[in-house]
């Protein structure tokens, strides 16, 4: 089955990598925003005030209940229509993935804090640690142990989901692949196989180390429980 050379004709490979970079860029920026905002959201979800918790919960459900693709359309087309502001595909993508990532991160952070037993905090306080110290030395480290693998898993999910942004016109790796396949349909009928295989390996190269690290960390944290 010939046709592998399709990957190396002209600047095809470089274009694929460029597309991959768009994928990675959107993911990284969204993940970074999500971590910061999601931590704040997660903290807000553990406060005593019921109204604050309810608002957070509603936000979380609204974001979760609709497919990411719908959100992409709403933000990309909807905001342009409503405000006349043209955000561009990549910005829209970052907004949507940040909204989503923030919700999911928030829920993970909330879960992580609530999974630390109440007694841990009380033991720390009983020893004379201040509230701040008991957070820093006792609660945070324990919450973080379970949180990190979950955050990594969320990140790989976000990276994979960025494939959707081609549908709002962003030329990420999958879109580049399609373009290459379409342009060479007649000379290289097997192009699709090779191009998609290449894309598969690119995703794999990014996501597998993350998944592996996540499962290792998760195992480690279970062991010391």
């Amino acid at each position: 089955m010939g046709g592998a050379e399709i990957l190396f004709i002209g600047n095809n490979f470089a274009r694929l990598l460029e597309g991959l970079w768009v994928t990675v860029r959107i993911s990284l920026i969204s993940i970074a925003f999500s971590l910061v905002l999601g931590t704040a959201l997660g903290a807000a979800m553990t406060v005593k005030n019921r109204a604050v918790r309810a608002v957070c919960r509603v936000y979380l459900e609204i974001v979760r209940v609709m497919p990411q693709l719908v959100w992409l359309f709403i933000v990309f087309f909807g905001i342009t229509k409503l405000t006349g502001l043209n955000l561009g595909g990549e910005t829209s993508a970052v907004i949507v993935f940040t909204l989503w990532g923030t919700a999911e991160t928030g829920d993970l952070v909330r879960g992580a804090f609530q999974s630390v037993p109440k007694h841990q905090r009380e033991s720390a306080l009983s020893l004379g640690l201040t509230k701040f110290q008991s957070y820093v030395y006792i609660i945070f480290p324990q919450a973080l142990r379970g949180l990190i693998p979950n955050i990594i898993n969320l990140s790989t999910r976000m990276i994979k989901t960025t494939a959707l942004v081609s549908l709002i016109g962003v030329t990420e790796v999958l879109k580049v692949g399609k373009q290459i396949i379409d342009a060479n349909r007649f000379e290289y009928p097997n192009a699709a196989i090779w191009v998609y295989a290449a894309i598969f390996f690119m995703y794999f190269a990014i996501c597998f180390p993350l998944s592996w690290a996540a499962s290792r960390l998760a195992k480690k944290s279970r062991k010391s429980d």
């Binding site: 037993p117 007694h119 841990q120 009380e122 033991s123 720390a124 306080l125 009983s126 020893l127 004379g128 006792i138 480290p141 324990q142 142990r145 010391s224 429980d225």
Partner: peptide, 16 residues
């Protein structure tokens, strides 16, 4: 609290 030591029923050593 530094002057009051307390040990609870549940095992509450810091697991990490």
């Amino acid at each position: 609290r530094q002057k009051i030591g307390m040990v609870f029923q549940s095992y509450d050593l810091f697991p990490h």
